[in-house]
């Protein structure tokens, strides 16, 4: 239970960083932290005490795998989510570079041409 709580703490830290910081690089870091908090949460769902990696090896029966292996689906989900996070992160970084090129600042409160 404490593990779930800790991922929640991590998530809230990320959201705080996203809201409170004005620097857009820090906002990106905050967003990445929230992303990883969710990934950690999904991994913990699949956890079981004294589990093994859900991979068949030679001289291992299906029953043994079912008895000791952790749930493989959350790991597949996390891998997909990490790849998506990578795509979003690289897009965000490149938009950041372009923004710096145009506005000469990383401060979100000075990037305010759109209003209303």
């Amino acid at each position: 239970m404490i593990l779930y709580f800790l991922t929640l703490v991590l998530f809230v830290m990320g959201v705080y960083c996203l809201i409170a910081k004005k620097n857009i690089i820090k906002k990106i870091i905050g967003l990445t932290i929230t992303d990883y908090a969710i990934n950690l949460f999904i991994i913990i769902i699949g956890y079981r005490a004294k589990g093994i990696a859900p991979i068949m090896f030679k001289n291992m029966t299906i029953q043994e795998l079912a008895e000791y292996g952790v749930d493989p689906l959350p790991q597949a989900l996390v891998l997909t989510s990490i790849v998506i996070g990578l795509g979003v992160l690289s897009l965000m970084t490149s938009i950041c570079l372009r923004l710096y090129e145009k506005y000469k600042t990383f401060d979100m409160s000075e990037i305010n041409r759109l209003k209303g």
Partner: peptide, 15 residues
């Protein structure tokens, strides 16, 4: 390619 685009070919860096 992402690494190249963000670092070497980024006009930002050369500036």
């Amino acid at each position: 390619a992402i690494f190249l685009a963000l670092s070497i070919f980024g006009r930002f860096v050369s500036k």
